[in-house]
């Protein structure tokens, strides 16, 4: 069930095609896919390995480009942006959470969270203040000086979430964020993502294998053989 059927559309895909070349062969991944995600929606995308769900996430997040079709995020036609424009757009509009956290090993938790703010015009003092606030939100203010090696998997993923929201982007994409975590840590991460949606109004785009994770979302779609199949809506609590 959608959080608010009246909420404006944040992500809109129309006729998106994407294929990859392996050797001499062309493997179609997405074939004329269309999709809408509303602002403030917790949207989960499921599907077997190789179904193209990560590819779809990359396209929406501006990490990759479609062969054909249009992708509009927050009113911006991102397929029309140059590489430099797209890079700058990602920095402002998208937060990323990955399966393997992808923190910078030589930087502390606080510095990892501060990293995306280097691309904003904020001075050092404000950057620190924002980063500390984000770390507080994920409950790790007391670990600010720890490097990733001294944090558990769940804690590293929480730092990654803090990093994803520190620039206050409207869209947070999470690619298998619980895939590498034990059950209880996974639960904490999902609680956090849910909270981002409920309390901060973020739009969450979650790609997952894990039905428990998908059950948290307002909307669940399954991708199979390049086609978005019928919606299977979770019954879990609403956001907004």
């Amino acid at each position: 069930m959608n959080p608010d059927a009246e909420a404006p559309v944040l992500v809109e895909l129309a006729g998106v095609r994407k294929s990859f070349r392996r050797g001499g062969e062309t493997l179609p991944v997405l074939e004329g896919l269309s999709l809408r995600v509303r602002r403030g929606e917790f949207f989960a995308l499921m599907g077997p390995s190789g179904s193209g769900k990560s590819t779809l996430l990359h396209l929406i997040a501006g990490l990759d480009r479609p062969d054909a079709g249009a992708i509009r995020v927050g009113g911006v036609e991102i397929t029309a942006l140059s590489e430099a424009e797209l890079t700058a757009w990602r920095a402002r509009r998208v937060g990323f959470v990955f399966q393997f956290y992808h923190l910078i090993p030589v930087l502390t938790a606080l510095e990892n969270v501060e990293l995306p703010l280097l691309l904003t015009g904020l001075d050092r003092r404000r950057r620190r203040a924002h980063a500390e606030l984000a770390l507080e939100l994920v409950g790790l203010a007391d670990r600010r000086g720890h490097t990733p090696a001294r944090l558990s998997g769940g804690q590293q993923q929480r730092v990654a979430i803090a990093r994803a929201i520190v620039t206050d982007p409207p869209l947070v994409v999470a690619d298998e964020p619980t895939g590498d975590l034990d059950r209880s840590s996974a639960g904490e991460i999902l609680d956090l993502l849910e909270g981002l949606c409920t309390n901060l109004g973020k739009t969450i785009l979650l790609v997952t294998h894990d039905p428990r994770a998908a059950r948290r979302a307002h909307t669940v779609r399954a991708l199979d053989k390049g086609v978005l199949t019928d919606a299977r809506e979770a019954l879990d609590p609403q956001c907004r």
Binding site: A88, A91, F96, H102, I104, P105, L115, P116
Partner: peptide, 13 residues
Amino acid sequence: TAEIGILRALGFP
């Protein structure tokens, strides 16, 4: 390599 990837994803040119 992965680190370079994440920096680029975060929007570092």
